[in-house]
Amino acid sequence: MKHPLALLPLLLLAACGSGPKTETAPAAANTASLPEAHVDPATAGTVSGRVLFTGTPPVMPIIDMSSNPQCERQHKTPVKAETVVVNPNGTLRNVFVWIKSGLSPAQWPMPATPAKLDQNGCMYAPRVQGLMEGQDFEILNSDPVNHNVHAECERNAAWNESQPPRAEHKFKKFASEEVLFPVTCSVHPWMRAYVGVSPHPFFFVTADDGSFVLKGVPPGTYTIEAVHEKYGRKEGKVTVAPSGTASIEFTYGS
């Protein structure tokens, strides 16, 4: 190499060629070689329960959107952060609950519709959601402003892409199980969503009553895990009898 500047094209090539990946994604789960899952409707059971919150709920701050007035104008009232949302009945919202282990490896039927993440009012909706490995993940920008969408995965390949106002929807897939990872926007640093990628359809995100239901579960003993973005993971075991309902409660607190 006669001149150091001759290195520049190589460096640039290395930069562009490496692409937007911080982690090398593990090989996609080879579900094609697995047997198709079959659940007998006559014996399928249910896992249900609630996620409770004890103690004084933390006060969520008002989000300051003044750095982007177009975001601010879309809200008639100030928007509170959604990190911890405790329902009036003392339950916790936005907890991802799923069967962590106990299911035999199988190819579960994929939902016909994609999981959707909308950017509306410079907030993500929904805050927390689950989808299956290989399921389409549709990203919309309903805002009149630019966003970048950064999937901060660790097991799957991370990516960061811009999405102009009302641009075409983006469609992504995640190949590997990963519960949970954040999706963020650096243009609007308060924007944060969480996604859980599951190899099966038995997951649920708690809403305004804090309850969850996993239907069509084959009889067996399972580890159920609850994951909250701030308070972390909790798990418990349940046994689902044929056509039975198993209950479990999780309790978080401040």
Partner: peptide
């Protein structure tokens, strides 16, 4: 300000020389 990834592309910004200077894009 956690704005480092507000412009995902480089050397252009949102495919332009001059993107809309809003939010984190202004800083990056």
């Amino acid at each position: 300000r956690d704005a480092g990834l507000s412009v995902p592309d480089w050397p252009l910004s949102y495919g332009k020389l001059m993107p809309p200077m809003e939010g984190g894009i202004f800083y990056e």
